[in-house]
Design a protein around this nucleic acid. Structure first.
Lengths: 252, 252
DNA sequence: CGTGTTTATCGTCAGGCAGACGACTATGAT
DNA sequence: ATCATAGTCGTCTGCCTGACGATAAACACG
């Protein structure tokens, strides 16, 4: 028996994506330029409508693939080639968040290794990686002197929530490896933590901590000098997902 | 300019509530009996449609008040009289989760002190507090020998996610006080942890930990013997919301 | 070819915190 | 009076972390 349509108000449901990566020692998020009203020309988070036959996670994975070409790896297996981590973040449903109509947006958080270039329907000028501090400024000027406007809709709030989730989650999980290529060094992993948290970490204590946590890292046997200096061991992400005891974020 | 309604599929949006409390040393959740198809007569989580002019949090607070009489206290102030903690949990949107139509449910988690009796539209027989293990069993028999059927829809999954959120969140936040009355003893707070985690904790180490964490507990000056034995100091929840270092959940 | 720079890695040491557990206190029950 | 119950204070030991010295292995530059 179908429902009485007058019994409930109809909603549009969308997914919005907070896609984070680490580029040049800073935490960056994917932003796309809006081509239509409202907020035409403003930067926003990528996203779109959930289709009639789609699960929420499927919709988020589809949008992620459309915007970045990333595919989502199975959460049961460790982070691997070109696979991004994707998880639900939170849902935003203020009645006035979209001036056109009642839209409920299920935000998702994606973590990806550094990628060559974003694409937004093939148009590179309408998508970019921007440092999160820049996107979260209320107004001002970016690194290139271009004036920066706040993100469209409530996307600044969504981005802030996503960044906070990422910052806290790398404390007690091995998620930081999702920002790394399939093989990486301890130093590269440390620079991920430093970029996400915005702090400096002691290389010696960090090395002791991550190599001493069982299941976090597994050596591949190879070494690399791509960072300069003494050759460093290469690792892959181990099977462990929870870090116990957690990595401690320095105060302040 | 309104949207073209054919551009997106319409959804019904609901809020479902995982309302947890501690009764008789066990973690219990509020369940209501369904009065109509589908799953007629089965137990389910309380919930309902989000209204056209309502925020998601408002809808959850309204449903909570309707089912329990609890009001939600401002998250900025500490837990206080008859106020419950309420937070968004996750959103569930599988296309087949409701056989009637496309429903997206924004689940919320509420934590409340032990309450006299639930009410579901005034009908007490259609609402009850049940131990979460009992509700999460696939099938079997409850404590009273009554046969137990699984929760309706995907509510077992939602409940499991809510319980897991509560279990992990009392580790690193002062949220356990939301299960306590306005004034409580260290022993009562310890029994909350023991019920939620399902473990036994050392009373001496627990006492040292919670009284030694600045801002967690503030003494009211009074004492009580309601638990028997030597009189215990009464405390209120302090302003601190984050516990650092966290309370450690014993292994296994 | 030495010297300096960079990054990686190993070691040492002191302080803090948690688990294990002994001891004592203050109430009610019998 | 004695016991049972629950609360509170201490002690000790082991582990982890932060601070930091020392060494190793590459490259850059003269």
């Amino acid at each position: 028996m179908p429902y009485d349509p007058s019994a409930f108000p109809p909603f549009a449901v969308t997914v919005d994506l907070v896609v984070l990566t680490v580029r040049r020692h800073s935490l960056c998020a994917l932003a796309v330029r809006r081509g239509e009203a409202p907020y035409q020309g403003r930067w926003a988070l990528p996203g779109g409508f959930v289709r009639a036959d789609e699960d929420l996670a499927q919709a988020a994975a589809r949008e992620l693939a459309e915007e970045t070409g990333l595919c989502v790896h199975d959460p049961a297996v460790p982070v691997q080639d070109n696979g991004a981590h994707l998880e639900q973040l939170a849902t935003y449903g203020d009645p006035k968040r979209d001036p056109r109509m009642r839209v409920v947006s299920v935000a998702h958080l994606a973590l990806a290794p550094d990628l060559p270039a974003p694409r937004a329907g093939g148009d590179a000028s309408n998508a970019r990686w921007a440092p999160v501090e820049e996107l979260l400024e209320q107004a001002g000027y970016g690194r290139d002197g271009e004036p920066v406007a706040p993100l469209a809709f409530d996307h600044a709030q969504i981005l802030a929530d996503g960044v906070e989730r990422a910052r806290s989650k790398i404390e007690y999980s091995s998620l930081a490896t999702a920002f790394c290529p399939p093989e990486f060094t301890v130093g590269e992993l440390r620079r991920v933590y430093e970029a996400v948290w915005g702090v400096a970490l002691d290389p010696r204590n960090f090395h002791r901590k991550v190599t001493g946590t069982p299941g976090f890292l597994v050596p591949t046997g190879g070494t690399t000098t791509r960072q300069g200096g003494r050759p460093a061991q290469l690792f892959r992400a181990g099977g462990a997902t929870l870090l116990n005891p957690p990595m401690l974020r320095p105060e302040v």
